[in-house]
């Protein structure tokens, strides 16, 4: 399954509820995101920050938009890509945690030279908290996934989920409170 037509077809089927189509699609988008990310990293200059939203949009352009510019499943693709970004990041955090236990590796802190501005966050804990939140309010969990892991803007999220930007903003703020408390606990 390599051609763009195949991919859009599978996306359509997945959207219609065909779970096997989603399974078939997953590795393609997943690999594409990883490939784009590595390529982006090669291109980036020191100090430049890589944005998840750029990766997701580029993956969309490459896999879908070339063949079907006005594809109606755009929103669906983004939610799929967001969940993949999440999976990529969480898998990596898991690997690191495993290595840390096995290999006595120091915790990931940025002390020398390359400290990157921004808050540190325990991705595994966030992932688990998000699973719990999904049980309480699935839409809020989706908003977090799109906002945090795929880096989408409020308006884009509103379009993906078919709700108003104000609702997205409210969901995000409330979910942030909930997750914050979970992480602090």
């Amino acid at each position: 399954m390599h051609s763009v037509e195949d991919i859009t077809q599978q996306l359509g089927a997945a959207r219609a509820g065909d779970a096997t189509a989603l399974d078939a699609l997953f590795p393609v988008v997943y690999e594409e995101l990883k490939r784009l990310a590595r390529a982006a990293l090669q291109r980036e200059r020191p100090g430049h920050t890589l944005q998840p939203t750029a990766l997701v949009h580029e993956a969309y352009l490459r896999l879908v938009a070339q063949a079907v510019p006005d594809w109606p499943g755009r929103a669906y693709f983004f939610s799929l890509a967001a969940s993949m970004m999440r999976r990529i990041l969480v898998n990596h955090a898991r690997d690191r945690a495993a290595q840390k236990r096995g290999g006595g590796l120091a915790p990931l802190t940025l002390s020398q030279a390359e400290a990157v501005a921004g808050q540190d966050i325990d991705l595994l804990a966030l992932h688990e908290a998000l699973e719990v939140l999904a049980g309480l309010d699935e839409r809020q969990a989706q908003v977090v996934e799109l906002k945090f892991f795929a880096g989408l803007e409020i308006d884009d999220i509103a379009a993906v989920l078919g709700i108003s930007p104000a609702t997205v903003r409210r969901d995000w703020s409330l979910a942030r409170l909930w997750l914050g408390r979970e992480l602090a606990a």
Binding site: K34, A37, R38, A40, L41, T49, L50, Q51, P52, I88, L89, H92, A93, L108, L110, V116, G118, Q119, D120, I121, L123, L126, F148, F149, G151, R176, L179, G180, R181, L183, A184
Partner: peptide, 16 residues
């Protein structure tokens, strides 16, 4: 504020 507004770029960088 425990959950940052954006995914820290460093995390993504490191992952890749």
């Amino acid at each position: 504020d425990a959950v940052p507004e954006h995914l820290p770029a460093a995390l993504l960088m490191q992952t890749i």
